[in-house]
Design a protein around this nucleic acid. Structure first.
Length: 464
DNA sequence: TGAAATGTTGGGGCG
DNA sequence: ACGCCCCAACATTTC
């Protein structure tokens, strides 16, 4: 009789889980474990609590009991291996910089002890070591990278595990003891109106999107007032859906507009590109990808706090930041607008914005978040040119023309006509302006034109 | 996955 | 009738 350990990370599913699948194929008993990382963002702690509950249930139905542990992964794994005489340890490749280091050490020690250990790709569509440009260098531009991926991609058949014989539970933590849910105050109280963590909720979202929004995705993804996006990102981040499952599902959707499918799949491509960059440049989260773009960042706690709280006086910015606070997510277009505003109009270091997103976004992801912020700040791979500065008024008028998005998240402006709602000056001049500014909605915290010119000047001096 | 400044064109008002 | 000017509307360039 042989027993294997399977280490779960952000792959909280049981199907299309290569490590779990192999363990179940090769061994009589399988012990799945999850080790908690207290460095996780606050919003994600809420998610992972519920997702682990769901995973426990799913594993239990297959005869497996999820062990929950805190502490150093290496100590925990070695202790289990020695105490229970385990025959093998399996896991999907770690995808964070820290996780890679941790698991490399685990593999080394297991090798040293002569304990079988195997790692699998559970998170990516392509092996990042196999994608190169035609000259053999690391790809730094999205389009050729993604074309190469699409050509090399192999989507495996579904990996479905069968039930194992039930084991006696190991001594492990109780999920409730981790106190992952916020109390006093419970700022996550609205989250469950928007989200159902775990595979069941993930599949519901995938089905809903494939049958509905997918066809119109190419256009509506930018439409802030409509539910045009898939909202799958937290489920993808925690690995409740495999990329292969998503890829298969959208490909099978009959009658879907091929352009919608193509654009949606290309979003998986941007994720893939971010992971590729992080794999080859482990400093992506803390250093400029383009080293020379070391902007003269400013530190201003007052404007930073206004940005975080959605009190900048620019309706589209405030709507985005409040959507983030209330729901743990933000429309991608809105992310571009608020991050351009923070880095360019407020001249705030992109790492400061990235840290706030890591703490508040349910889908916060080291690779995507770092690559995205660097892209906006102009120091990333295939980045927006430094002079591309979004005007929040124009962006609002363009992508939220009837003001639906602003009115939903900034209720102070609910009665302001759509014609003026994105422009603070026009609101002030309208009959609704009196009493609004300086009252319960803030006046703009910066002058758009001045800050734009200042940013251009600062960026220009970098290149001189 | 920009915005603003600058350049060009063409219709219409007007002397 | 004709040239001139104005200025949208659109295109191009620049940041």
């Amino acid at each position: 009789m042989s027993t294997a350990l399977v280490c779960f990370q952000n792959d909280l599913r049981i199907d299309d889980h290569p490590a779990l699948y192999q363990a179940c194929q090769n061994h009589d008993f399988v012990i799945p474990i999850y080790v908690y990382d207290p460095g996780m963002g606050s919003a994600q702690k809420w998610w992972v609590h519920h997702s682990l509950r769901a995973l426990q249930q799913q594993l239990s139905e297959k005869g497996m009991i999820l062990g929950l542990y805190r502490g150093k992964v290496q100590d925990i794994v070695m202790n289990l291996v020695k105490t229970h005489g385990l025959d093998a340890v399996y896991w999907n490749h770690a995808i964070t910089v820290q996780g890679k280091g941790v698991y490399a050490a685990v593999a080394k020690q297991l090798d040293h002890m002569g304990v079988k250990n195997q790692q699998f790709n559970g998170h990516l569509l392509c092996n990042p070591d196999q994608i190169r440009t035609s000259t053999g260098s690391i790809a730094k531009v999205f389009t050729p990278f993604w074309r190469h991926c699409l050509q090399n991609m192999v989507i495996p058949d579904p990996m479905i595990i069968s039930a194992k014989d039930r084991m006696v539970p190991l001594v492990s933590d109780d999920l409730d003891d981790w106190s992952l849910l916020p109390q006093h105050p419970n700022w996550a109280k609205e989250f469950d109106q928007h989200w159902q963590p775990g595979v069941t909720g993930a599949v519901k979202k995938l089905e809903h999107f494939a049958e509905g929004g997918l066809s119109h995705y190419a256009i509506r993804r930018n439409d802030l007032g409509k539910e045009g996006v898939s909202s799958l990102s937290p489920h993808i981040h925690f690995g409740e859906l495999s990329l292969w499952q998503i890829y298969r599902r959208v490909g099978q959707q009959t009658g879907a507009d091929p352009e919608g499918v193509r654009v949606f799949i290309s979003q998986l491509g941007w994720r893939e590109f971010s992971y590729y960059l992080l794999h080859h440049f482990p400093h992506l989260p803390d250093q400029n990808f383009k080293e020379k773009m070391n902007f003269p960042w400013k530190t201003d706690e007052t404007t930073l706090t206004a940005w975080k709280k959605g009190q900048t006086g620019f309706p589209i910015i405030d709507a985005g930041m409040r959507q983030l606070w209330h729901t743990g997510t933000m429309n991608n277009r809105a992310r571009l607008i608020v991050s351009s505003f923070l880095t360019k109009n407020l001249m705030t270091d992109w790492r400061v914005g990235a840290a706030w997103f890591m703490d508040t976004l349910l889908d916060a992801d080291e690779a995507n978040n770092s690559a995205g912020w660097q892209w906006v700040a102009g120091c990333g791979a295939d980045a927006a040119p430094y002079f591309r500065i979004f005007n929040p008024i124009l962006q609002g008028q363009k992508f939220d023309p009837d003001g639906t998005y602003v009115k939903r998240w900034v209720p102070e402006l609910a009665d302001v006509p759509a014609r003026v709602i994105h422009d603070p000056e026009k609101i002030r001049a309208s009959s609704h302006g009196s009493g609004l500014f300086g009252g319960h909605y803030p006046a703009p915290i910066v002058d758009l034109d001045e800050t734009r010119q200042a940013a251009l000047q600062a960026y220009k001096e970098l290149t001189d």
